[in-house]
Simulated assay, not measured.
Amino acid sequence: MKPYKIPESVLVVIHTADLHVLLIERADKPGYWQSVTGSLDAPDEPLLQTAARELFEETGIVADGERIALRDWRLSNVYEIYPVWRHRYAPGVTQNTEHVFSVEVPRNIAITLSPREHLNYVWLPYLEAADKCFSSSNAEAVLLLPQQLRDFGAG
């Protein structure tokens, strides 16, 4: 039997300097577009490691910490797990805590999707990307992108 998913995850908003956002289409729900997401592999897995692992698994992008550096927004969302995916979690688990990260990449970076997880990808201006996200927390994160980048620039 497959172990239950840990109800703690990361969301990684991938963007270019000019605020185009990469969205990927779920293989298990065609038409559902999102940023990179994924649960911790172990309860003690560091969030930054989870974000880097999921970024690589889902897009082939390697966060090297220098040219491609993940930014921890120190923002988390608690949301109801969609009923269609609750079977992946232990009985009685209905909420997930999602930690938000972003990563700026060059527009011409190679994207290699995991065919088991995703069907397609698209680059969109951030407002269009927010409209296309099926998850409200993902859409909100995309809309916060300009402010987060200003805050990081000031820090």
Rank of each mutant, 00 (worst) to 15 (best):
K2Y: 11
P3D: 08
Y4R: 14
K5W: 09
P7Q: 10
E8S: 14
L11G: 06
V12E: 07
V12M: 02
H15G: 03
H15K: 05
T16D: 04
T16R: 12
D18V: 02
D18M: 07
L19K: 14
H20M: 08
V21I: 01
V21L: 01
I24S: 00
R26K: 14
R26I: 00
D28P: 08
D28C: 07
K29V: 04
G31D: 02
G31W: 04
Y32M: 11
W33L: 06
Q34Y: 06
Q34I: 03
S35C: 15
V36T: 06
V36H: 10
V36R: 07
T37P: 02
T37I: 13
G38V: 04
G38F: 08
S39C: 14
S39G: 15
S39A: 15
L40T: 05
D41Q: 15
D41S: 15
A42M: 08
P43G: 02
E45G: 02
E45S: 09
P46L: 03
L48R: 15
Q49C: 07
Q49R: 13
T50C: 06
A51P: 00
A51W: 03
A51Q: 01
A52G: 02
E54A: 07
L55P: 00
F56I: 03
E57V: 11
E58A: 11
T59N: 07
V62Y: 10
A63I: 03
A63K: 04
D64V: 03
D64S: 01
D64Q: 02
E66H: 10
E66C: 05
R67L: 06
A69S: 14
L70H: 05
L70I: 01
R71Q: 09
R71C: 02
R71A: 08
R71N: 08
R71V: 09
R71M: 10
D72V: 00
S76Q: 13
N77I: 06
V78E: 11
E80D: 11
I81Y: 01
V84E: 15
V84N: 11
W85H: 14
W85Y: 15
H87D: 11
H87L: 07
R88I: 01
Y89I: 07
A90F: 06
G92Y: 13
G92Q: 12
G92P: 07
V93A: 09
T94H: 15
Q95D: 14
Q95S: 12
T97C: 09
T97I: 10
E98W: 08
E98V: 15
H99N: 12
V100F: 00
F101G: 00
F101H: 05
V105Y: 05
V105G: 06
R107D: 04
I109Q: 02
I109F: 04
I111H: 06
I111S: 04
T112V: 08
T112M: 08
T112N: 09
L113Q: 10
L113N: 04
S114M: 09
P115W: 09
E117T: 13
E117S: 15
E117N: 15
E117M: 13
H118Q: 06
L119D: 02
L119Y: 00
L119Q: 06
N120Y: 11
L124V: 05
Y126P: 00
L127N: 03
A129D: 01
D131H: 05
D131Q: 12
K132F: 05
C133W: 01
C133K: 01
C133V: 02
F134K: 14
S135W: 07
S135M: 06
S135N: 12
S137G: 14
N138K: 09
N138G: 13
L143R: 14
Q147T: 12
Q147R: 14
F152I: 12
G153V: 01
G155C: 10
